[in-house]
Simulated scan of single mutants.
Amino acid sequence: MEHNHVHHASGLAGDLLLALPFVLAVIIYILLGWVSNRRHKRWPIYRYLSLFFGVLSASMALMGPIAKLAHENFIAHMVGHLLLGMLAPLLFVLAAPMTLVMRTLSVGAARRLSRILKSFPVSIYCHPVAASILNIGGLWVLYTTELYSGMQSNLLLHIVVHVHVFLAGYLYTISILYIDPVPHRCSYTFRAVVLILSLAAHGIISKYIYAHPPVGVPREQAEMGGMVMYYGGDMVELVLIFLFCRQWYKAARPRTVLSITP
């Protein structure tokens, strides 16, 4: 693929613009942690690390060598997809940002936020089925239509696609892995079924890309990109599966009942 204006626009100013939301996220998260620590038990260090590495993962997909190479190399694009759409959302979820916000707010504000989280629109987008459709369905549209080639020549479309990839990955992860408070909870069995089906669909997309390169992508790059998506995605998915099964085991484990014999 030839260089295009999206590539030329990705200079220092473009990188700073793309990095701004993630830098603000880190600053706000640290400030919330500082306020929360004054009222409650200290916020765990590993939560800060999760957010930091989540921001780092997303930033690597949006700027720097990988992002610049992704404009002309499908393999690099797929590495960016794994960083932005799979690894970064998982790390953000492990940072438990909504729990931190709830700890920081006053009682009245926390109740208002809780009512918003319990609203019908939020419950729809956070439902495992809807979140899976947004996540996996978006990938099908991106790689089986001319959307991928279009985003390489349109800066606004390029940004919109990347924002969708991250948000869809985040919604999907919070719909499967309950770290933050979830007003509308689905059973472990239901989420396990959705997880298995979505993992299968992700693998099918990878194989489809291998056999049917997206518009404008050389076959050699499509084959290698499909393999990166398949095996790299498996690594992130294994972590998600492990955390999900760990939660399920803890929830199903019988509680020890202490009895005193007279």
Rank of each mutant, 00 (worst) to 15 (best):
I136N: 08
G137I: 02
G137L: 05
G138I: 01
G138S: 02
L139Q: 11
L139S: 06
W140R: 03
T144K: 02
T144V: 00
T145V: 14
T145G: 14
T145R: 14
Y148T: 03
Y148M: 02
Y148V: 01
Y148D: 00
S149H: 12
S149I: 13
S149L: 13
Q152M: 15
S153R: 14
L155M: 11
L155A: 10
L157D: 03
H158P: 00
H158D: 03
I159Q: 12
I159T: 08
V160P: 02
V160M: 09
V160H: 01
V160N: 01
V160T: 04
V160S: 00
V161T: 13
V161K: 12
V163C: 09
V163G: 03
H164P: 04
L167M: 15
A168L: 06
Y170G: 13
L171E: 10
L171H: 05
L171Q: 06
L171I: 07
Y172F: 14
T173Q: 03
T173S: 07
T173Y: 06
T173A: 05
I174Q: 14
S175L: 07
I176Y: 09
I176C: 09
L177W: 04
L177T: 05
L177P: 06
I179D: 06
I179Q: 09
I179Y: 04
P181M: 03
V182R: 10
V182P: 01
